[in-house]
């Protein structure tokens, strides 16, 4: 079970969080033309990297904040955690 440091609450066990996928995906802006390819990329296509991955987690049984977690998908090492508005 992972030990994730919520930037708002501190170190908590994984079972307080829910996983939210790739944190680097940016939603296309509203009311802007988006090509089919770009939209499909946004909705469906995700990389599945072996190694470092910046991902979203929500502290669902805690402060309910969405946070960013930089994690190694192979070793589960967590390098850093960030608030939603922080960049790596």
């Amino acid at each position: 079970m992972l030990h994730i440091k919520c930037p708002h609450c501190g170190l908590r066990s994984q079972n307080e969080f829910s996983y939210g996928g790739d944190a680097t995906v940016k939603r296309p802006e509203l009311n802007k033309e988006v090509s089919d390819k770009d939209w499909d990329n946004f909705v469906y296509l995700r990389k599945s990297p072996r190694g470092k991955h910046l991902e979203l987690w929500q502290h669902i049984s805690g402060c309910r904040q969405w946070i960013k977690v930089e994690r190694d998908t192979l070793t589960h090492e967590i390098f850093k955690t960030l608030k939603a508005n922080e960049e790596v």
């Binding site: 939210g20 979203l56 929500q58 309910r64 904040q65 969405w66 939603a84 508005n85």
Partner: peptide
């Protein structure tokens, strides 16, 4: 609720 929080915190802060 999680869906709404996602958009408020990450997409349209």
């Amino acid at each position: 609720l999680s869906h709404l929080e996602y958009y408020l915190q990450l997409v349209w802060p």
